[in-house]
């Protein structure tokens, strides 16, 4: 893998990810996740649903950007259609805005410039895909990074929120690695197809958690 791609996947990338738990904080607040096995289940569920959707969107965005990537409105609408919770839409756009700022300072690309015109800021998977394309990466690689981040973000939130053993969490992620690869491969298969046929797996409980989280008084994470 090229070093630029590693930068994009690095949790130290200053793109705002550290303040998002991917729905883990409300899951912890609801008592649904208390230990490492429950976290591993949460991550598996998230990977198979919103992880797959985001990875496919990123793969499609990468392919679109590689073709020149001027018009983004349709993919933006497809993303909204697959993100029923307004709280999750806002979180995705917030992370998309932050990632776009980082990407545009590091990698020149007309497709990234075009994304800057998205009202409310572009969705996160679209920016991930376009950023990957800007460094010459393939849709498969954009999907891999997106699927990987779909589990590593909430995992590190779990360490902070519950004081989980970081070695045990890392082992859970290692066990999940083959699933991450499989989801990325499946997602990459949609890169060049019609956007309307991108996967639309849903996770209603995550949607509910996201909405409930916004109305919580005490919370550490944006989402």
């Amino acid at each position: 893998m090229r070093a630029s791609l590693l930068l994009l996947a690095d949790s130290r990338l200053p793109a705002g990810g550290h303040a998002h738990s991917g729905g883990l904080e409300p899951a912890v607040a609801a008592g649904a996740v208390r230990d490492v096995p429950a976290l591993a289940d949460f991550l598996r569920g998230r990977l198979a649903t919103s992880g797959l959707v985001a990875a496919a969107l990123a793969a499609a965005a990468c392919a679109h950007a590689a073709r020149g990537g001027g018009a983004w409105a349709a993919l933006d609408a497809e993303t909204d259609a697959r993100t029923p919770s307004p709280a999750q839409r806002a979180a995705s756009r917030a992370q998309g805005r932050s990632l776009l700022r980082v990407a545009r300072t590091a990698w020149a690309s007309p497709a990234l410039d075009a994304l800057a015109g998205t009202p409310g800021g572009p969705h996160h998977p679209a920016v991930l895909g376009a950023a990957a394309a800007a460094m010459g990466a393939a849709p498969r690689e954009a999907a891999e990074i997106t699927a990987y981040m779909a589990v590593t973000g909430p995992a590190s939130a779990g360490i902070r929120l519950l004081g989980l053993d970081p070695l045990a969490v890392n082992r859970a992620l290692a066990v999940l690695a083959a699933d991450v690869d499989a989801v990325a491969a499946e997602a990459a298969g949609f890169a060049d197809g019609p956007w309307a046929e991108l996967p639309a797996a849903s996770a209603p409980l995550l949607d509910l958690y996201a909405e409930r989280h916004l109305r919580t008084d005490l919370r550490l994470f944006e989402s």
Partner: peptide, 9 residues
Amino acid sequence: RDDISANLD
């Protein structure tokens, strides 16, 4: 310090 994006936003 390390990731100022929310504040910049």
